[in-house]
Design a protein around this nucleic acid. Sequence first.
DNA 1: AGTGTATCCTGCAGGC
DNA 2: TGCCTGCAGGATACAC
Length: 283
Amino acid sequence: MPELPEVETIVRGLSPDLPGRTIEAVRVLRPDVLRQPPRAFSAELTGRTFDSVSRRGKNIVARLKGDTVLVVNLGMTGRLLLLPEKGPETTHPAVRFTLDTGRQLVFDDVRRFGVLEVLSVSEWTTRSRRLGPEPLSPTYTARTLSAGLTESVSPIRSWLLDQRRLVGVGNIYANEALHVAGIHPRRPAKSITGGEARGLHRALRRTLRQAIANRGTTLRDYRDATGVPGENAAALRVYGRAGNPCPRCSTMIERIVFGNRSAFLCPECQPYDPGEQPSGEQP
DNA sequence: AGTGTATCCTGCAGGC
DNA sequence: TGCCTGCAGGATACAC
């Protein structure tokens, strides 16, 4: 659920307040969101002080003083909320940190696909190296994208979702960027031309930056670190809009399914075979 | 090696 | 009203 723009919004919300704060208590209400025994998790974090909060792909990365990193992946419905001392109860709290200010940092997650992990700096570095490049990094050029596409026969939408190739892009922004770029989600990655790759690179960046400016897309569950929904849903062009007119050409937007996930496209603006009439049915 | 499918879990919307 | 089905922003263990 939360993709790069949502995670970025949360991190920007936590950054002014979390560094310098010490964790006084850890309460694990739902141990299945951890990758280690709750006792060990709590023991590693209790008494530690936050140093910095940053983002890597869809992960929230909190560095603590000493050789400790708390990595939070929100899964589909996870929230990381910094709440006042007497804040409202959240609906599905999984882990609660009490800070030295009395405020609570709460990981709340309806479906519990989210994960919290404590790692050493070197463990985190190793993990981070296995992830692909950041799409908004200045060093991520159209050429980088184009080069990565050439070896893969994977459908471009699946390629964009693979965090080893490129981080931060999920199903919403993959579909949105492909519409902006006029590329059918099912096209094999290696069939994307150099010109199309340049367009896709630009579309990805524009789509992600716009979503950050709008503080993320809230379909149902996403909230920022203070519990406020994002405003980007109104800007979506195709995602979740099957049966509605394409904002560019007014053709009916279609929903197809592959890789166990919905894809949304305009058959006119995103033909599978450029130059031929899009049929809607692909092998 | 690289892809696609099924699975974890809960809640909600829509059909009947 | 109530039951049933399908669907959901992610990641990953498998089978091919």
